[in-house]
Structures are given as C-alpha cells and as structure tokens.
Design a protein around this nucleic acid. Structure first.
Lengths: 327, 327
DNA sequence: CTGAAAGCGCTAACAA
DNA sequence: TTGTTAGCGCTTTCAG
C-alpha cells in the first residue's frame, strides 16, 4: 500500500500534524525536523493524497475541461495548451467530450463539480440559463461564448469574418453564401453579424445556408443548397465544413477556387493539407487554452467572488489557395 | 454551498448512513424511506461527493490517460473513445500530455496515482524498469507496448508493415527505406522487425534512416538521407513523418509517387487530405481506447491481482495515391 | 516549534 | 430496516 502521512510521522518520530506542515507550510517547521520528515517521506515514497487534502481545504487542484468533440481538430491544441499550463500550476485536468449533446454536457458538469475547482466550458451547447444555474455549483470560464456574470475567453471571429468577406469582395465576388454551423453556436452568431454588416458595406449579397453539423458531413450536405443559391464565394462555419464543401463541389464538377471560392474558419491542420490549401480565419486556440486556465485559476484563488473578466484574442485571415476571383 | 449527505439526512429525517445506503446500496433501504431520501436529495440538488467516497472505498472512479502528445492527430480519436467508454461506466478521465518527455511522464503518473483507480499509458516513452516500479503505486494498462506482468492493448503494426513492404515489392520496388521514429518506440521496433523480415522474403533491400522525431519536422529532416540512400520506396514511422517527407521530397523536385513512393502509418485525418492522398497502415485507435478502458476497469474491479491480459487489434493497409510502381 | 483533537463527506461493520 | 460508531488521509485551530 502507498505510504500515508501517518507512516511518515512514525518513521520520523513526529506527529502527523508536523508532517502535514512540512508539506503545506514548511516555514512553520524547524529546519532540523523538516529535513528528517522529508528524508522519511522520500524513503517511503510518500506523496500527499490530493483528494484527502481537498476534503479539508476545499481545493482539489483539479479542473474540468469540457469540449464538444475531442476529435474535432479545433480542440486538441486547446486541450494540450490548457493541460500544460495547468500542470505548471500543479493542477490536473479532467477532459470530457459531450458529443455535441447538451444533456451530456449538463450531466458531466454536475458529476464533475465536486471534484474540481472550476471548469472550462469550450463552445458550450447549453443555453445561458442552464449555465447560470450550474454556476452555483462550480466556477466556470467559458470559451467562445458570453454568459452574464461569467469570465470568458473570446476569439474575435467577427473580425476574422469581416476580413474574409472583404477579401472575397475585393476579389470581385458579388454573391456570397454563409454556410452556418449549429444553431446555438456563439461563434456562428458572431460570424453572421459581422458577415452581414461587411456584406452590406461592400455591397455584396449574402445568403445564409444552414444550420449544418460542424463537420465534413455538414459541408457535404450543404453542397446542394450552395449550388442552388448561385453564389461564387462561400464563408463556411469552420474548416471541416469548408473541406466537405469543397469535396462535394468538386464531385459536382465545380472547381474550387476556379468557379467557387471557399473560406474556412479555425486554421485546423487538415485544412493545411487539403488541396486546394484552405484560405481560413486562424483562431488562437493554444493561447485561448492558456488564457482560460489563467482566468479560472485566478478566480479560484481569489477570496472574493472575483469580478468576471473578459479576454478577447485576435484572429487573422490566412490566404491560401481556395480563394480566387470569380469566373 | 453544495448540499452534503448530512443536509439530506436532516431534510428527510433519517440518519446519514441511510442516505448513504440509498445511493450506494438502494436495496438495503425500504422503498418508503428511499423515496423520501431521494426526494430530499433531489430538492437540495445533492450529489454524492466522489472524492470523499473514494477516501473510504478506495475507488476513485477516475482513470488517468497519459499520451505523448495530444495534438498528434493519432491520439484524439483514442482519447475520445476512451473517455466516452469510461463515462458509460461512470468513470471520469484525467488526460495528460507528456510532451514526449519521460521525466514529465513519470512525475505525472506519481501525482496522479492516488486520484485514479488506474492509468492508461499510451505509447509510453518510459523504460520498462521504471514502468514496473511505478506499477506498485497504481494499476496500468499500456497501449502499443509490452511490459512484463502488465495488461496491454497492441495494434499489430507488424502486420501492417508486412503488408506495406509487400505492397511496395509487388509494385516493383527493389530498394526501400524505413524512416524510423523515436528510439524507444515499441511500434517502431515492431515495424522494423516486420519490415526487415518481409524485405528479406521478397528480396528487396531495406535501409533504415533515423531515429527521427515523430512529426512533420522529423520527416522533413529525413529527406536528405532518403535522397542519398537512392531508394524508390519509403515506409515512414507514421503519417506525419510521411507527410513531411513528401513535402520535402517535392521541394527537391522529386515527385511522389512518380519517383518515390511513400507509405505512412496511423491513417490519421491529415493524411486523407494530403495530396497525394497517403497510402497508410490504418490503426484501430478508437477500438484501442475502448479496449484499454475495458481491460483497466476489469482489472480494477477484480478482487485478485488479475492476470495481465494481452489484446491485439488488427491493422490494415489503405492504398491511396502516394504509392506507384518505381520509375 | 510541535502535539492534541476535531472534522471535511462519506462508507462500513456492528447493533438494535 | 435503520441507527451508532469508527475511520479513510489530511489540515487546522488551539494549547503547550
């Protein structure tokens, strides 16, 4: 069995509370005993049991990270960065996938609540009311979403969408489709607003197609409507949708970017390997993961009910080969 | 504050142990009181604290999942499947990324040990002796590695490598390079053995290049040696290396598959979008994730020190566009 | 600076 | 069927 604090106490001839102190408040212990305790701990391979510690301190040193779909290439860089950043601060990370299902998301948050000091909600599918209710149980930081009274990390996809539409307009496109994603997506809403405004300013006609699943399948499924709409340019909900769209378009004998230009969002790895290489709005996912952890941990370690912070990260347009002037 | 078992006991007029029973052994409680307790729990929003429960039962209902690099596209499907499978069994999953660093890996395992019932080690970089030592603290299941006395889930990459070499031989290639990955990789060793044997059988000459990083960079870095070796076919350590290789080859004006054929391993998403679309050895990563969770949980729930199980999953060769007859 | 004692939320014998 | 009691591993007053 693994060594407990009692074993160490016995081995070093002190009381358990002294052992406890040498780990959680070393300055309250004389150097001599401290070294004795440390030596005993070392030789027994003792490590404080974090869960037991959490029971008295109320700090688990764990955080939860909830994403819609781990295998959506948008998330892994965020997960990786968040996890690495958390580790530096001595935090472990529960990662959970909701399969894009709000019910699963809610259940997950509730069962996780007691085991974590806070949770990172990435692009949640839950409605605001539910999120606010759950916030009574555990602190949240939401990513790519705004919820009243809650800290959030936002990637300014609106800015990216403006750049995207302006890019298409500058190339000479006059009729553009916005191929939307899931209905409840904050990102989708921002894109819509920004695209609509920029379309109006640049005098291009904008049609919206969707909602669609945020996947290659979703893109494939939207092909018919895109064709029917008679547009020469498309801004897709994300890169996966864009890739599916391109695939479907080419199956219908429509060349990209020859006849239709396509822009994605996310700048996900597969988009870089796609042919044509995808023009896309790059999202700062790693930075967002780190920022979210920082926000969460600072709100957790604050004594007062920290004022919610808002952090907006910039996006940019990466022009590659999937956009060109209209035929 | 969140409700505790005591609040529920008070609200329903029973002792805490009765509340405890209605959650962990409902059949020991009369339907009448059970309903009363459940109702009280419901209205208070009570959820048992899993960490506190773990303290007495010794079961945390958490598992650890340690991978070398979350953003390597090989891992997300495995993580997703493992996590989903664990959730069905009411388990939460800590995910940790070691950044391919054995020291980080070891430290992670030790700090995680007390908070989990077991850990899934995916393609660990640790040496066997260290793994065996750590196994005293916490049960392991290793993926794509064999360690004495430990359950493992293996993907039969040797079989895939044989198919790959045979495929190249059948196309007429007479001199082939194996572009290796990290030195300590079990997968790499299996590939090497199988490739060597099959090369001998089919009378092709095999040269080994590496070790290389298991990334696009690694592939790019190996280009010079591949060119110098004068081969017409390559089996790369994984798809990422293959993609880097192809990129580098084409920068040097060498056409793939026109002048050199390249085969990857993993069947990762970017390989499907690469041009030429990558011929590759497909790994059953999702199935492996599920199998690993099953193995871990069955060994955890067994009372005796379960006999280590070995589970081997099949791989297959997916022929796409990066292989062709030699010039 | 160190020890004693209480208690975090829960479960598990043991009695009743 | 239910209550009582002890205790999981640790921290945290409070004394000394």
């Amino acid at each position: 069995m693994a060594a407990t604090i009692r074993d160490v106490a016995q081995a070093s001839g002190v009381h358990v509370s002294t052992v406890s102190r040498t780990f959680s408040a070393p300055h309250l212990v004389s150097p001599a005993t401290r070294n004795r305790v440390l030596a005993a701990a070392e030789s027994l391979g003792y490590r404080p049991n974090r869960a037991a510690r959490a029971l008295t301190t109320g700090r688990t040193h764990n955080i939860g990270l909830i994403v819609a779909d781990i295998s959506n290439p948008f998330f892994p860089p965020l997960i990786k960065a968040a996890q690495a950043h958390a580790r530096l601060r001595d935090y472990h990370v529960f990662v959970a996938d909701t399969d894009e299902d709000p019910l699963v998301e809610e259940e997950l948050i509730q069962t996780l609540a007691k085991q974590v000091d806070g949770v990172l909600l990435c692009s949640p599918r839950l409605n605001n009311r539910t999120i606010e209710r759950l916030a009574a149980d555990v602190p949240f930081v939401v990513v790519n979403r705004r919820v009243r009274g809650m800290s959030s990390v936002l990637m300014d996809v609106g800015h990216g969408a403006r750049l995207a539409i302006a890019h298409l307009a500058a190339l000479g496109h006059r009729k553009i489709a916005l191929v939307a994603g899931p209905k409840a997506s904050w990102t989708g809403g921002e894109m819509r607003k920004a695209a609509t405004a920029t379309a109006a300013e640049t005098g291009v006609e904008l049609v919206t197609i969707g909602p669609n699943a945020p996947t290659e399948q979703g893109g494939l499924a939207a092909v018919r409507d895109v064709l029917a709409a008679g547009v020469t340019g498309v801004l897709a909900y994300n890169d996966l949708v864009a890739i599916g769209l391109i695939e479907g378009l080419e199956e219908h004998g429509v060349a990209v970017p020859g006849q239709v230009s396509v822009i994605g969002v996310d700048d996900v790895v597969p988009g870089r390997f796609n042919r044509p290489r995808l023009t896309t709005v790059a999202m700062p996912t790693s930075a967002a993961g780190r920022a979210a952890v920082d926000l969460l941990l600072s709100s957790v370690s604050a004594d007062e009910p920290a004022t919610p912070a808002l952090m907006t990260l910039e996006t940019s347009l990466v022009i590659r080969d999937s956009t060109a002037p209209p035929p």
